[in-house]
Design a protein around this nucleic acid. Structure first.
Lengths: 241, 241
DNA sequence: CGCAATATTGAAAACGATCAAGGGTCGTGG
DNA sequence: CCACGACCCTTGATCGTTTTCAATATTGCG
């Protein structure tokens, strides 16, 4: 089912009625494909639309005036793309397809209209936005207070946990289309250093990232090293019933 | 007027009707005072309430398993405190009073109920949450891709800009209750280094932070150094009319 | 007035960046 | 089918920024 990814996700937080789901389904029609590198939204763009990612990976980032790139988050199937940008007249960040992707467009006006018909939808979307923010906050902790090795482990563990929720990872690991440059720009490190860190993690038999595949060799020890605590990702069932 | 700070803020994004404002006013009754160091919400707390800050400064932070603290953001009058924590069953971060503060409590249930009566309120709150996220994202860029000096300048410029919106700063500078330890924990630096950075900024005649007062000696040059672009804070009037 | 918190400075050490070079892989076009 | 270029990965050497450790002011508050 096309809209299942989003409705499934929102339902974990707020119990949605048949009417709510119908309202939701009404504006999830425009399904589109994008090639690698396509910019779904870019800084300064006005009236950008948001998307729900159905297939593939994307990432959101900002650039500094001197041209450095900071990746804010990676998005995997089921995630919103550019939710924040539809609330601002002009977008403050970029969203780019990391692989070929398939995504469903969501128009701002549709979304706001839907809030009037289905107020629980509003709560659900607010929750989704808050969960995104919780992830950004954890990335901030990552950059501010963890060493290069801890950071790298933490990011890959987070991605593993998120992918597991949508059936794209298991305890062993996951397929990962990121380059070391992507990791570097997400972790606030140089690509050279990321390479060294990955080698060191491999040598310690903690984890391996090679040829597009992340393998967790010692999940427990890795989790401990990274100080990884999933509580910022966890939901224990609908808050609103 | 008590609820003016919040309603003023929300109104800049979404035009709210008399009814909307009345709905808003209904749950902004419990005004409370807190002393320095009071923890308004803490990690793991269940059913935390949110607040709207009326007077004084607060800050939100997370801690790592090894006890390091990362300050996520500072809050000044007019800001939400712990908005994200009411959406999660258990809070994922801490909020602490940095000075004596005065704040109005907002109960989760009140807020969700209000969405049914006043859907535009939902959009407005979603916008407020998104603006908070935009600030966190900019802090992430700060830690990931700027030097210690740029970072420090950027944070203090941001605080100046935000305080200006509520009349607590002007082009010259602002009163600032932060210690160098607060700055260090927000910037991902050691307090010792923050001290050296502040000295260097002073020696370059860019800005001064001493005795609880931030003075911008050369706003233009400082802005340029920090790569400070206010667009992530700006609003050009209501999006929904 | 006295203590605790905050600010300041120096010296040494660590971490990560930068510079530089080489190797692998994949897709495209000749 | 091979050659080439683009992109990505890898490693070594050196440099610079920031941390850590340590000691000493200074400030503010009860």
């Amino acid at each position: 089912m096309h809209q299942s990814a989003l409705s499934l996700k929102l339902s974990t937080f707020v119990s949605l009625s048949e009417t709510d789901l119908a309202t939701l389904a009404r504006f999830l029609i425009r399904r589109r494909n994008f090639t690698v590198g396509y910019e779904l939204t870019h800084e300064g763009q006005v009236n950008a639309s948001a998307f729900v990612l159905a297939e593939g990976w994307a990432f959101s980032y900002k650039t500094t005036p001197d041209g450095d790139r900071q990746i804010v988050d990676f998005q995997v199937p089921g995630d919103f793309l550019g939710l924040r940008s539809i609330l601002f007249r002009t977008s403050d960040h970029n969203v780019e397809a990391l692989t070929r992707i398939e995504a469903t467009e969501v128009l701002a006006s549709d979304l706001f209209d839907a809030f009037a018909d289905a107020p629980r939808l509003a709560t659900a979307v607010l929750w989704a936005a808050s969960r995104d923010e919780a992830m950004v906050v954890e990335h901030l902790v990552n950059l501010g207070r963890r060493t290069a090795e801890e950071r790298t482990a933490h990011l890959l563990l987070e991605l593993g946990a998120r992918l597991k929720l949508v059936g794209l990872a298991d305890d062993a690991g996951f397929d990962c289309p990121l380059t070391q440059y992507h990791l570097a720009d997400a972790l606030g490190l140089s690509a050279v250093h990321v390479n060294r860190v990955l080698r060191h993690l491999r040598e310690q038999k903690l984890m391996t990232f090679q040829k597009g595949r992340v393998v967790f060799d010692d999940f427990a020890r890795l989790t401990d090293l990274a100080g990884f605590d999933t509580s910022y990702l966890d939901q224990d069932g609908p808050l609103l019933r």
